[in-house]
Design a protein around this nucleic acid. Structure first.
Lengths: 149, 149
DNA sequence: TTATATGCAAAAGCTTTGCATGGGT
DNA sequence: ACCCATGCAAAGCTTTTGCATATAA
């Protein structure tokens, strides 16, 4: 939709650092996945969509895509969301920007949003429950308020 | 964990009403699923767990369980959550009690909780986005704060 | 009597895994 | 050299679907 995210480079560096830190070696397929995510990972992407995008210009087999996404999820570099259609979708996880999603049931559109009040409410709940959060998701479903049917 | 939920009967009646209202006929398998849910649907149950629970004492094939759960979800009678393991889990949806879940990543335990502040924050977001919500989920992951490792 | 419900078995996906090969460090 | 990464093809899984039969209304 938009062009390359502004913090793409930042994330790329972070990814490199964490991968190296985990004792992993660089490889063509994983690099391709990571670059693809840095470019288009702003919205929810399925493994197959990524694999398809890569297949056109080089490396990145299905297996490698799945394996890479699992690693990146493990390292907290991408965020995984399991859809009602049984397909897992992935997004770049930025260190300090939590965002969530609204699914329009009429149009199928997905809107990402950020909300400090919501984040605060979640932090409050965690405190009340006496737990430490490592991640959280908020999924909203409904229709955008319009006058027509 | 606990005994039969107090509002089980209430939900059973609601279910009957909605199913009839949708022009559906009663059937042994679906009845069994519904009764099972009324009894044990307080926590997240997978289709296969339900099917297994039914198989022991009567009707309820795999196919019927899946079909029933889809119908109940459609009618808003149960709430569906798609797990990271690729398995969908279901819970009875009570008309006026929203609750959400905390997943302890250390123990695997799942804690259900309610929080008015959180609900309010979500309602506020919806208003700000100009959307009408039909459902929403909040998923928390982390560890319960304890002193040991 | 007609539309729905059920069950079985087969099919459909998405995702994972075994294994041999290639590549980084 | 050693260990990790990659790709292919073959499983593994949950979930869906086709079809014949049984059953509610």
């Amino acid at each position: 939709v938009s062009s390359v995210p502004p913090d793409a480079d930042e994330w790329l560096e972070l990814a490199g650092r964490r991968l190296r830190g985990a004792g992993l070696k660089s490889g063509a397929a994983r690099n391709a996945v990571i670059e693809h995510l840095a470019r288009e990972g702003g919205c929810l992407l399925s493994a197959q969509e990524i694999a398809l995008g890569l297949r056109e210009k080089g490396p990145g087999s299905n297996a490698s895509v799945y394996r890479t996404l699992e690693q990146l999820t493990e390292l907290g570099l991408v965020h995984r969301l399991d859809g009602a259609d049984g397909v897992a979708r992935y997004e770049v996880a930025h260190p300090d920007h939590h965002h969530h999603h609204f699914f329009d049931e009429r149009t199928g559109e997905v809107v990402a949003f950020e909300d400090d009040g919501l984040e605060k409410a979640i932090a409050d709940v965690a405190k009340r429950l006496g737990v430490e959060l490592t991640s959280h998701d908020v999924i909203l479903r409904g229709r955008s308020s319009q006058r027509d049917s």
